[in-house]
Design a protein around this nucleic acid. Structure first.
Lengths: 332, 332
DNA sequence: GTGAAAGCGCTAACAA
DNA sequence: TTGTTAGCGCTTTCAC
């Protein structure tokens, strides 16, 4: 067992109150006692017990982060932003891998509550009603990253529709007329429908008719990108470009194209979404619509902490096309 | 403020002691009271406060994980194993991104201690003396993953020397005689020196003389792989294969070779290390020496928890070559 | 089978 | 400037 504040007090010949004051930088002691106490603390190697502290303050200085998978490139960058900002602000973060499983998510929500975290950040998943009910019941501040909800919960995300609109327009501006789309999970109202909407609008603005067979669904993952690319190419012989709703799916498409000996960008141009490390590492390097993932993570903790002060504004983050080597201009 | 055990007790007309017993499945109450109390708990939506509990038990059911970067593919897979196992065992995990920074690591160690975590898992970094001192001072169980130390601290890792030996031998067996190596950080005694040793031994066994100019250093990251490949190729015109000490560096090498229009595996064979997702997603898919990262993560928490019972055995995990498409057999 | 009460390590009145 | 003391929400003797 380690030393307690009592041990320090005794050894320094002061009361625990004084030690506590010194520890918390509260007024009420002489320079002399402060020095003495600090010396004793150093000598003993005393460290305050944050659990005891938390019991009183009702503050644990820890945040809970719920995400679909820590090993997911996308989420892990957001997490890294969260972690950095939390560290700067002296908070700790508990990671909870939901596996996109509702039961597991609920279990975590309960655990986080029991452990009295000061707030929750929820990344990139569909925010179910039951989560909402649980969270409001526990009256914890929460912010959504890269997703949103019908409730009055602040979120941070990019404007998906606009982002895809810009991406597709980028292709259009380079002479592409027959553009396929590898969309996200079918029916996903957050990250799929609005993006398809953006795709449609971009086409429409240049008077190109939308064709259903040009959009194919995946699940944001690599393998689904392979399958989707195959389907797309079989259904559309005239494609000159593909817009992919995630870098991983773009990597899958790239992989499929490579296997088919279809050269990128010479025969087919490709554009991804997210601008994660996989875009950089792709061969050839992937042009992609970038989201400021790291910044979004950082902002989410800032926002979460401000929430305690009553603010509650969502944030639309800017997207930006990262130009690399998978898009070719073709003669118009 | 939520309900406390007191509220439950009052409403159920029993003492807090009884409620506590029921909550903890201790003996000492009738079926009838149990039912009543449970009903009241459900009605009120009462949840025990783990902080208060932790103050008494000196157990928080939370683990601290220190890793160089959460967004690192390698570490994030280990983390995901840790997270899964922890979840199964009803533990939470706090992630600490050390950024490979000693000061930051020490800060985290202190925070983890103050927050009374039950144990620490330290992933893939060099384990400094000062960490050791801090940790032994706080008498916390700790296990090292993918690294080791001169101290009596249990670790989980693969046999790096043997793994590289096998990887290089794999190349040798396929007729390659002039094999370059992209090693890790220069001077790293854990993940670089032993691997170079394995490389040397494999060559030696087939009577090939080792040449210094055939090994080049990186830092395990993508960019360093690009630079290393370039250096290697300039220094060695006859290379037919390259062994890379991480998949990311292999991806970098792949990228460089692509830019130089050197075909893989036709002109140069490549083999990576780790078998992370980047190996699967590479073009062409990367043959690599795989480490069971996820399993290592899982085992680390099991081991950590057993440590409390006094056990202290390290674990060497099996490696296995994942054969994909970057290695070609050449005529002998 | 059940309850009263002490106390985990700390903070925050309230006194002095 | 400093100390005493009452809790924070819970577990755990010890009585009954």
């Amino acid at each position: 067992m380690s030393y307690t504040i009592k041990d320090v007090a005794k050894k320094a010949n002061v009361s625990v109150a004084t030690v506590s004051r010194i520890l918390n930088n509260l007024p009420g002691y002489s320079e002399k006692t402060k020095e003495k106490v600090l010396r004793v603390i150093a000598e003993m190697g005393y460290q305050p017990n944050a659990i005891a502290r938390g019991l009183i303050n009702k503050k644990t200085k820890t945040l809970g982060v719920l995400l679909p998978a820590v090993s997911d490139t996308f989420a892990s960058v957001v997490l890294s932003g969260i972690e950095d900002m939390a560290h700067d602000l002296d908070y700790s973060v508990m990671v909870c891998n939901t596996d996109k499983d509702g039961i597991r998510t609920m279990k975590y929500l309960q655990a986080l509550r029991e452990k009295q975290v000061d707030g929750i950040i929820f990344i990139s998943e569909f925010f179910k009603d039951e989560y909402y009910n649980a969270i409001t019941a526990m009256k914890l501040p929460i912010v959504l990253v890269s997703t949103k909800s019908p409730y009055d919960i602040p979120f941070i995300k990019v404007d998906d529709e606009k982002a895809v609109f810009d991406g597709v327009t980028y292709l259009l501006d380079r002479g592409h007329r027959s553009i396929g789309m590898i969309a996200g999970t079918k029916g996903d109202t957050i990250a799929t429908l609005p993006r398809i909407e953006g795709y449609k609008k971009a086409l429409k603005e240049q008077n190109i008719v939308f064709e259903t067979k040009k959009v194919v669904y995946g699940d944001f993952g690599f393998d689904s990108g392979i399958a989707a690319a195959e389907e797309l190419l079989e259904q559309n012989k005239d494609l000159t470009a593909i817009f992919c709703s995630s870098d991983e799916m773009a990597a899958g498409a790239l992989s499929y194209l490579y296997r088919m000996s279809i050269r990128v960008p010479d025969e087919i141009s490709l554009i991804g979404y997210d601008n994660t490390k996989v875009a950089e590492m792709a061969i050839p390097p992937l042009t992609t619509v970038g989201q400021p993932l790291y910044e979004m993570g950082k902002n989410s903790v800032r926002m979460l902490l401000e929430l305690e002060e009553g603010k509650t504004e969502s944030m639309i983050m800017p997207h930006k096309i990262a130009e690399r080597e998978t898009v070719k201009s073709i003669r118009k």
